[in-house]
Nucleic acid binder design. Structure first.
Lengths: 215, 215
DNA sequence: AACTTGTCCTGTCATGCCGTCAGCTTACCG
DNA sequence: CGGTAAGCTGACGGCATGACAGGACAAGTT
């Protein structure tokens, strides 16, 4: 068991308490997606949830603590990303499909969790181990199976053995993450979002197989 | 002329004033690289600069305003990045060198401006137009010449014409930016930093030319 | 040296958020 | 119905914010 939900001062939270707690998390998530992280205040979250700041501090040590909670929830969801790579084929035409679905699925996940991932990314970049770990959980859910796929192809002589499989997978996932984070940047380069998949997918295919994508 | 430096209340800053202002900026830059953005307080910056919070507010509207200043300075420096691509050759072996130097130079620039770029990236992701513009200035200093290079190769039939040059360049720059931002992530994948260049450079080469990198 | 002018800095104050605690209310159970 | 633990909040000291007025200072003028 993960143990019951507890308040900061050690009480176990009952039905009503968990509801309040959840409402606070929901409101915080909402706030994160509408105002800059730096400006998210406990008092605003509490007000939005129709409760008082003191209540917030009953359930979370501070804003960061609550954010971590939301992030961990999201990290759990990220297991679904494994399916984008696990057991997929990279041979010929089906490899193209695999890479396209990977790009699509990954971008969609990132878009869905946009706001919280922004904060996680910042925290990780600033050297916070907890955020870093969460970010790794998300990226690993794709990077691990992808590295395995590369190793597999290398073993079968269908990919460049000189490349470090983990480094290749990591770079590609970084590519997807960054493209996902800054979709707006592309439009300002005159690139339409729909042009993004046709560009990223061949890069992924190229990185994994070392071959040019077939038409 | 960019116009003289002015205080918030409109006075022109003299020699001494500019020194104080600069010292505040330097201390803020220092703070950004040692503590989380969310926790950077005016009072700490002022204390470190041996002055009072009121003085800070003479020169900057708020922390964000000062951060923008630092970011703009950095954006100016980013013109040096153009040299990494402008007039370089992508043919054969020298193409490999070009891509390697591009990766190296870009990662170095990002490492040098680590802290401020983190904040700029966050601001841009949160939709702040000013930060977004600064980020684009930095990325464009490489993306523009890179897109030109791709177009050039396409015209000469040495690259896939079906690809959108701007999208390719943008994706590759995104790749570099993201790898640069999260160099730590790679080490946790068991990838050494020195393995990063040999992985990224071929990807860049592949993206630009559509061909596998020569040995 | 006294005076003037404009720059530069800070003490102080009102305001608002933070984070804690004591104590009140509510729900559940025997 | 009374006991117990959960749930909530008003109130408070502390600190950051941001505005202002006034004092310190440098440099030039008479």
């Amino acid at each position: 068991m993960t143990g019951q939900v507890r308040t900061v001062d050690g009480r176990v939270a009952g039905r009503r308490g968990q509801e309040t707690r959840q409402k606070l998390l929901d409101c915080l998530r909402e706030m994160l997606s509408t105002s800059p992280y730096r400006d998210v205040k406990v008092i605003d979250v509490a007000r939005m949830a129709g409760t008082s700041p003191a209540t917030f501090y009953q359930y979370f040590p501070d804003v960061e603590g609550a954010v971590l909670e939301i992030a961990e929830e999201m990290a759990k969801d990220s297991v679904e990303l494994k399916e984008l790579v696990d057991g997929k084929s990279w041979a010929g035409k089906s490899g193209t499909t695999t890479s396209e679905e990977l790009v699509d699925g990954f971008l969609a996940f990132w878009r869905k969790n946009d706001a919280i991932l922004r904060v996680v990314t910042l925290g990780a970049a600033e050297g916070d181990k907890r955020f870093f770990k969460i970010r790794m959980t998300v990226l690993n859910s794709v990077a691990k199976p992808l590295a395995d796929a590369v190793k597999d192809l290398q073993a079968k002589g269908q990919a460049d053995r000189a490349q470090d499989a983990a480094a290749v997978a990591g770079s590609l996932i970084s590519l997807l993450a960054s493209a996902a984070e800054h979709q707006k940047a592309f439009t300002s380069w005159g690139v339409k979002i729909k042009d993004l998949k046709p560009t990223l997918a061949p890069l992924v295919y190229l990185g994994v197989t070392g071959k040019k994508a077939p038409k």
